[in-house]
Amino acid sequence: MIKLFSLKQQKKDEIPGRAGNQKKASAAQLRITKDINELNLPKTCQMEFPDQDDLLNFKLIISPDEGFYRGGKFSFSFKVGPGYPHEPPKVKCETQVYHPNIDLEGNVCLNILREDWKPVLTINSIIYGLQYLFLEPNPEDPLNKEAAEVLQTNRRLFETNVQKSMRGGYIGSVYFERCLK
């Protein structure tokens, strides 16, 4: 039998002095600390923390070593909110890139960043997802529709466009900054 849980015995007016009022880390902070300490980065990825005490805001640099984007260097900003991991972090691409799933404002179409996010996923899952976007750009879910159409109809031209954009140059009317390593 579960012993009766009684509140009456508690005299709330005479709380024994507690050991200071040490502030506690939030559940989001506990979780991100774990995520960050256990990052297992692919060799093409690097993390940058502008402030080592702020584990909620950081950058990821991806330098693909194969595929269309080999030789390029792409930076993503991560903002982890107090709702983490109930809510996914906000991720933006800071490098202008000619890519079917990334638009010119840096929005990224990756399912686990939005509709398929689950609290069991980690920062590492997102990093692998982003890395995969560079290996296998997906024209089915376009954010940059023009790039997606070229990829679908003319892979050679897509490859040329990617090369041109990474060296720095115009694709149509859009200028891309050089982002080669």
């Binding site: 996914p88 799933n101 638009d103 929005n107 990224v108 179409c109 399912n111 960043l113 939005r114 509709e115 996010w117 879910d141 376009p142 954010l143 529709k145």
Partner: peptide, 9 residues
């Protein structure tokens, strides 16, 4: 959260 590509296109 709707997929971004749906929202965009």
């Amino acid at each position: 959260n709707f997929p971004l590509c749906t929202i965009a296109h």
